[in-house]
Deep mutational scan, measured.
Amino acid sequence: EPLWIRPDAPSRCTWQLGRPASESPHHHTAPAKSPKILPDILKKIGDTPMVRINKIGKKFGLKCELLAKCEFFNAGGSVKDRISLRMIEDAERDGTLKPGDTIIEPTSGNTGIGLALAAAVRGYRCIIVMPEKMSSEKVDVLRALGAEIVRTPTNARFDSPESHVGVAWRLKNEIPNSHILDQYRNASNPLAHYDTTADEILQQCDGKLDMLVASVGTGGTITGIARKLKEKCPGCRIIGVDPEGSILAEPEELNQTEQTTYEVEGIGYDFIPTVLDRTVVDKWFKSNDEEAFTFARMLIAQEGLLCGGSAGSTVAVAVKAAQELQEGQRCVVILPDSVRNYMTKFLSDRWMLQKGFLKEEDLTEKKPWWWHLRVQELGLSAPLTVLPTITCGHTIEILREKGFDQAPVVDEAGVILGMVTLGNMLSSLLAGKVQPSDQVGKVIYKQFKQIRLTDTLGRLSHILEMDHFALVVHEQIQYHSTGKSSQRQMVFGVVTAIDLLNFVAAQERDQK
Rank of each mutant, 00 (worst) to 15 (best):
A470M: 05
I300K: 03
F293K: 00
V241K: 00
I498P: 12
C307M: 05
R459C: 10
T421N: 02
M425C: 10
N341T: 01
L373C: 08
H474K: 05
G245V: 05
P408E: 00
K402P: 12
R278Y: 06
P368N: 09
Q435E: 15
P383Q: 08
V339S: 06
C331A: 11
A249T: 01
D405I: 08
P336A: 06
G245W: 07
Q435L: 15
E401M: 09
H372S: 10
E475Q: 13
T395K: 11
D499I: 02
Q447T: 15
K449C: 12
H474A: 05
V440Y: 05
Q256E: 15
L399K: 03
L471T: 08
E263Y: 15
T274K: 06
V280P: 09
I238V: 13
F285T: 07
E508A: 13
K286Y: 02
V415S: 12
A316F: 13
L299S: 07
G304M: 00
Y342Q: 01
G458M: 07
P368A: 08
C307N: 06
G393H: 10
I463T: 15
T314F: 02
A470S: 14
G240N: 02
Q439L: 11
N341W: 00
Q439N: 15
K512V: 14
F492K: 12
I272A: 02
P388E: 07
V415G: 15
L335K: 00
T314I: 13
C331K: 00
Q302H: 12
I396T: 13
V494L: 15
N502Y: 12
A301W: 07
P243K: 05
T260W: 13
V333Y: 05
K433P: 06
P368I: 09
D405N: 04
A497Q: 10
T391A: 08
W284P: 00
G414C: 12
I247S: 08
S437P: 05
Q354F: 13
M466K: 14
Q489I: 10
G328F: 09
F271R: 00
V317I: 12
V415K: 03
G312V: 00
Y342F: 04
V504S: 08
P243Q: 01
L460E: 05
E361V: 13
I451N: 12
D405C: 04
V504E: 11
S338L: 01
W284K: 00
A413P: 11
G441N: 15
P436T: 12
